[in-house]
Each structure stands twice: as structure tokens, then as C-alpha cells.
Nucleic acid binder design. Structure first.
Lengths: 202, 202
DNA sequence: GTCTATAACGAGATAGAC
DNA sequence: GTCTATCTCGTTATAGAC
């Protein structure tokens, strides 16, 4: 019944689940095995070590989520709408725990350049995703020449990371909801400013 | 020669140094003791436990750095200058490792609400600091009414956290220098827009 | 306050039967 | 591929001499 593929899948899921609930310090081989209800030794047989399993699982998960989210972003060409989609992503990810897992691994890979490199590879798609999302609203406004879209994309992703980080720490989660409302308003202001510029080239 | 105060100080310094170089997983009682060249048992005598020591040291350090930085920000009333100060803070902190230590502790306090609360207390001053720095340039522009300064401050701090996080992970640290140049340019653009508004009330 | 010594435990990892 | 059993090491933490 349980072929080799099932056990690998099971371990990867259990690894991320444990990472999100217990943190990097609590994510031991034994804890992962308990979560996935498999034998502890299989982690080393299939992945070679705990950290290898964690990175493998996190990178795959990150890529899949980025790909899945691409659909939501394509076709969005106005800034307030973009801010709204961003808010949904934030809320969804906050409960799903993607950024949280990422932060835990970021801490876990300290002093291990090879693991850090692998982690980065799983994260990069998000920057590319935001870059292509920003390209639309900025197209033909003149600002796409004036402000490097690459830098903006990097900043937006960094902003998201930071917000989710702080959101998890802040005892009274007050600011975040208001925050995205502000972003939407800000998007509206900018849109009113950019929109006429676009039409000059239409 | 070594009174009790010296040992506490020594341990707190050694704890942060170890945290920055070894990460949360490598920051054990023995490693800290070795860094500070003191006996391992003294950590438990003076602080009760490793995590207590780390939080105590990090919160004190964070508060002191925020206070020290306040002087650099006071008197800055134009956005490009603000961006420049921000760049300096980023560079300084990147090599000093304040945000890095914070991230490690963020990961370390996962699932421990009491420690998380203490960590947050050490972090809050930064948000307050940014809030008062933004208040100046936005004063009397009309935007201080339109856009909640609290949300902006929170966002700016989150952005910084995120940038430093990614900067440490990105294998080729390419974007960051360019990033702050972009911020300064952006500040210039906005300043040119806000400046005339301010003079209406002067 | 500081030291040595050690208890008590959990970690990663492996050998070898199945 | 999966299991049991175990080795070895490092961890927090404490007891007790100084």
C-alpha cells in the first residue's frame, strides 16, 4: 500500500507541519516522525538528514504556492485591485504559515551557506512574481523608466516578509488590517495619478 | 576584580555575539560560556536559563541602539535626507547584526508567548522612533490627515526588517545598494510634491 | 559568586534483522 | 523500504565544594 513515494510525501508534509507548530528548535527527527506517524529512521534513509528534509519540503512548497498564486495576479492591472489581492495573500499565508516556516528555516540555516543557497532558490520565484505583477500597472506611465521595477519588486516582497514577521510577534494584532486598508487607499491615490499618464500612450 | 556586575555584562555580550555568529541552534549554554570565557553554570545562576539570558540581552541592546539612533533622526525634515539616514542605519546594522539577532530570537521564541511578549517590548521603540521621524516631513502637507502615520511607520519598519532578512539570504547581494539609491530618488520625487504643500501653511 | 562534576535526558545517526 | 535497537554525543540543569 505504502510505496516509497508515499513515505517521502508524508515526511515532507509532516516536516513542514512540525516546523510551523513547533519552530526550528522543536523540529527534531523524532517530532517529525511522530507527526507523520512514520519511523524516525526513515528520515535519514530518504533525505539524509533533518535539515535536508526541511529545505527540500520548504522549497517545493514555496514554488508550488508561488505558482498557484500567479493565477490570482495575472490580469490585475490597477493598483487598488493589486493591493486587495495582496491583502488576501497576506491573510491566507498568515494562517497557512508559509512565511513563518521560511523564517524558521532562515534562522536554521545560519552559518550553512549551502542550505541558505537552496532556501533562496525556493524563494526567488516570489520576487519574479511580484515583478511581473508590477510591470502591468506601471507600463507606459513613464515611471517604469524612472524607477527600477526590480528594486520595487524586491521592496514589496521584503515589505510582506516584514509585515508577517511583525504580525506574528505583536501581542495585539491591531495594525495589520488597518495597514492593508491604507495600502488600498494609497493605491487609489497613485492610480488616480498614473491613470492619465497611461492614456497618453494608448 | 570581577564583581557580579561584570559577569552579567560579559554573559550578555557573549550571548549576543554567539547568537549572531552561530544562530539560535548553535547558541547553547556552553557556546556562550566559551565566547565569554566564563563558566557555563553561571548562566543559570545569573539568568535562570539560556533563553532568558538571550531575551534579556537582546531587548536591552535593541533599546539602547534605538535610543542612540534617535539623535541621527532628529532634525531631519526632508525625505531624501531621511532615506540617506535610513541607508546608513541599514548598512551599520547589517554588519553589526541587530536585526539578525532579532530574527534568530523570533525563531527561537516560537511557541513561547511569554518570551515573544518580552521580545516585542524591546522592538516597539523602533516603531515609535520611525513614527516621530515621519511626522516631520509629512506635517502640514495634508497627507498626515489622509494617511495614518502609524500605519506608515509600521510599514517602514517592516520593510527594513524584510530587506535585511533577504539581504542576508541572497547569494549575490546585488539589489540592496541600488535599492536605497532608488529610495533616495523616490524621496526626492515625493519631496518635490510635498514641499509646496507645506509652504501653504508656513 | 564561582568552580568541578555529574545527573538526566534528548538529539542525530547507523547497524542489521526483516 | 521499513523496523528495532542502540551508539555516541551534546544539551540543560543542578549539587556541592570552595
Amino acid at each position: 500500500m505504502t510505496n516509497r513515494s508515499d513515505t517521502r510525501r508524508n515526511l515532507m508534509d509532516a516536516a513542514l507541519e512540525t516546523l510551523k507548530s513547533e519552530g526550528i528548535k522543536g523540529t527534531t527527527a523524532r517530532a517529525i516522525a511522530a507527526t507523520g506517524d512514520v519511523n524516525q529512521a526513515l528520515i535519514f534513509y530518504h533525505f539524509g538528514g533533518v535539515m535536508d528534509l526541511l529545505i527540500t519540503a520548504a522549497v517545493e512548497d514555496s514554488r508550488l504556492r508561488a505558482e498557484r498564486f500567479r493565477a490570482h495576479l495575472e490580469g490585475v492591472s490597477e493598483l487598488p485591485e493589486l493591493a486587495e489581492v495582496a491583502r488576501q495573500l497576506h491573510e491566507h499565508d498568515l494562517e497557512e504559515g508559509g512565511v513563518s516556516a521560511f523564517t524558521q528555516l532562515l534562522a536554521g540555516t545560519a552559518g550553512d551557506p549551502e542550505m541558505a543557497k537552496r532556501l533562496w532558490d525556493g524563494f526567488e520565484p516570489w520576487i519574479e512574481l511580484v515583478r511581473s505583477s508590477l510591470a502591468g500597472p506601471l507600463a507606459n506611465t513613464g515611471f517604469d523608466k524612472l524607477l527600477p521595477v526590480d528594486d520595487l519588486a524586491y521592496s514589496v516582497v521584503a515589505l510582506f516578509m516584514g509585515i508577517e514577521l511583525l504580525d506574528r510577534l505583536d501581542p495585539d494584532r491591531s495594525p495589520t488590517e488597518a495597514l492593508f486598508t491604507t495600502f488600498t487607499q494609497l493605491g487609489g491615490l497613485l492610480e488616480g495619478f498614473l491613470s492619465p499618464l497611461r492614456q497618453q500612450d494608448a
